[in-house]
Amino acid sequence: MSGTPAVPDQAGTAVSDGSPAASAQVGAASSDVGEVPPERAGTGAPDRSTVRMALVVGGLVLAVLLGFGLGRLNAGTGGTGLGGSAGGTTLTPDHTHPAGTAAHEHASVAGVDQGAAAEPGGLSVSSGGYTLVPLGTEFPAGRPEQLRFQVRDAQRRPVTRFAVVHDKPMHVIVVRRDLTGYQHLHPTMTPDGIWSVPMTLAQPGVWRAYADFTVVADNGGQSAVTLGVDLVVPGAYQPRPLPAPATSTTVDGFTVGYQGSPQAGVTVPLTFRIDGPDGGAALERYLGAYGHLVALREGDLGYLHVHPEPELVDGQVKFWLTIPNPGRYRLYLDFQVATKVHTAELTLTIP
């Protein structure tokens, strides 16, 4: 504001912004007001111009103090809002915390914790400046083959720096387009950024592979990304109908059920109870948590990967789930008992 001319107020009194140039103009303007009337001379009572000047100066001081306070308030909150950063973590609209901490959900560029407007991820091979490049998309039915791929940045360079999130730097989900044959895999990476993992696709058809990962930038910032690509198994494709909606199912002798009422566009708790033949199952941590929940949307196979509260709640696994749109979803819950991982599958309909 230095050098800004003083501006007279409506009564003709100049107002200063506090700079030396403006203060000089205030003094000159004040001298034009006139001398103190004889009847007030020597009485010690301040004239009208002096009162005005005191009010102006007091107002300027108050404005400065208010501006400083608001600036401190904004500085204290700006680093944790969307698009800011906290603890070196890049914050995107759908991943607003350091990767791998607390209950959260991954969707498009996850995650992590998702807002009500977040869309499922995995719908494209490219997102957020990163591209999934498979080194082969055709696989034989029923025989193990290596799934191999790279993640490349916007300059087509292989990405080689990934954060370890839930014990692994890369999570790969594979499912056929009729939502059968679900697999949760963890590939390994060579120094040149090529990921590989053995995989068996049991039946002919079109399959969807999702790469769920968190990239570490040169400045240490982290970006959670989910990319997807189609894989083909030649042969006669016989799709299976999606099972009817249910809140409980059985798998490998375990009964798995959930409580909660998912709604479109609302984040709600979903609590899973796992019982064995003799009662409550002794759940073990798998990939750093007591359960992992994947939800896939029927039709376009939009992807949500949800992680639970860090501890059991009354012996149950508690998630916070945001379903973005109405439709039918297939839920896949991974849990571990006696060192073995099991997957329970349920159909969910959101009206």
Rank of each mutant, 00 (worst) to 15 (best):
P5W: 03
P8H: 00
A11M: 03
G12M: 01
P20I: 09
A22I: 03
A29Q: 10
S31E: 03
E35M: 09
V36T: 12
P37R: 09
P38I: 04
E39Y: 06
R40V: 02
G44H: 03
G44C: 00
T50A: 07
T50N: 01
M53K: 12
V57R: 06
A63D: 12
L66W: 07
F68K: 14
G71L: 04
R72P: 04
N74D: 10
G76Y: 08
T77H: 13
T77V: 15
T77A: 15
G78R: 14
G78C: 12
T80E: 08
G84Y: 04
A86D: 12
G87E: 14
G87K: 03
G88S: 07
T89M: 04
T90Q: 12
P93Y: 10
H97A: 14
T101N: 10
A102E: 13
A102T: 14
E105D: 11
S108W: 15
G115F: 11
A116K: 09
E119C: 09
V125F: 15
T131I: 14
T137S: 12
T137L: 05
P140D: 11
P140L: 10
P140S: 15
Q146G: 07
L147S: 13
R152I: 13
A154I: 07
A154Y: 05
H166C: 05
K168N: 09
K168L: 05
K168E: 13
H171K: 08
I173F: 11
L179R: 10
T180I: 00
V197F: 10
T200H: 13
T200F: 11
A202D: 15
A209W: 05
N219D: 15
Q222H: 02
S223C: 01
V225E: 05
T226A: 11
L231K: 05
V233I: 07
G235S: 02
Y237R: 07
Y237V: 11
P241L: 01
P245R: 13
T247H: 14
T255G: 13
T255D: 15
Q259V: 10
P262A: 02
Q263T: 13
G265N: 12
V268D: 03
D275N: 12
D278C: 02
D278S: 12
G279S: 02
G288Y: 02
H292Q: 11
L293F: 05
L296P: 01
L296S: 01
L296V: 09
R297C: 03
E298T: 00
G299S: 00
D300A: 09
E309Y: 08
G315A: 00
V317I: 09
K318Q: 14
W320N: 10
L321A: 06
L321K: 04
L321Y: 06
G327V: 00
D334W: 00
D334P: 01
F335H: 01
A338I: 01
A338G: 09
A338C: 04
K340Q: 12
H342K: 01
T343C: 12
E345P: 01
L346H: 11
L348G: 02
T349E: 15
